[in-house]
Design a binder for these strands. Structure first.
Lengths: 150, 150
DNA sequence: AAAGTTAGTTGTATGCTACAACGAATAGGG
DNA sequence: CCCTATTCGTTGTAGCATACAACTAACTTT
């Protein structure tokens, strides 16, 4: 570990700094993209949609949020008519979450403008670089925490 | 635009999803890393340190924050004795921000544990991958917004 | 059946943020 | 030299997101 090149440290610092900067800006950027949808709720809705049908606990684990936070966010989403809860027939504690038709629609429209923003931002990148960047991010996020096994 | 490979779209989606997930988790992760330092303030302090001496406006631009937000955060940092304000002799509106000795110290200790966390998370990565990941992040952040010119 | 565990909700407090209205300092015309 | 931008920063106010703790309901284990 002594001989490890100093370049690694530098790369780590850059990664750390840039990820932080990104995280910091993300809120503002997201708010600009979909001023209508309550922002965080959008994220949760997207995740609910991505894995068709998931529990509140899954959301909490995936995003490292307290269950109370998720509970309120889901309540908001439900009030907006974007998400439905179906009690699990096998276990009445569990509510399985699904996007409603309106939810899917809202998601699609937001997704579109969001994708456009990304496309503009990453338009110059080669498909190769995009693929590698995506792979790095996946690897980075997968490593970290026990968020969810798969 | 029609012939653009669908792979690009997929990569974009992955990038979007993973960056979002990261941003979402970042708060919780950061809170774990330095429970003492008010979290956001840490970020600002790091930036103040990184560019030796900057104005509140610079911080706001860099992180896409409202000046009022920065004002309060800086006030907090000052109250904690981590940052000093020096009025610019040429322009009395401007306050140049500098970390205090305590600020540098706090930053160093946090930086250390933070770096350790990153090192653990990215320990398996080759130096090459790290460098490329860092470069992608730099490129990504640089492109986006008029945060700051350089 | 009693004790323990898991899913989710609600009460409460706090942090971070934006927007708007303001004060102070400077810069640019007439 | 005043009068009007413009720029930098603060304070008032309000809202969202979040955590922690206490609680209910439902399942599980012994």
């Amino acid at each position: 570990m002594a001989g490890a090149p100093r370049e690694r440290e530098e790369s780590l610092d850059v990664i750390q700094r840039e990820l932080t900067a990104f995280a910091r800006r993300a809120r503002a950027a997201a708010a600009r993209l979909h001023p209508d949808l309550p922002l965080v709720s959008y994220t949760l809705l997207a995740h609910i949609d991505h894995r068709q049908g998931c529990r509140a606990t899954d959301l909490a684990a995936h995003y490292m949020l307290d269950k109370s936070t998720v509970s309120r966010q889901v309540a908001t989403l439900e009030k907006l008519g974007l998400v439905e809860r179906h009690p699990d027939p096998d276990d009445h504690r569990i509510q399985v979450l699904h996007p409603t038709t309106a939810g899917v629609r809202a998601l699609a429209s937001t997704q579109a403008s969001r994708r456009a923003a990304y496309r503009e931002r990453l338009g110059e990148w080669t498909a190769d670089d995009l693929a590698r960047f995506a792979e790095y991010l996946l690897r980075y996020n997968a490593t970290g925490d026990g968020t969810d096994p798969r």
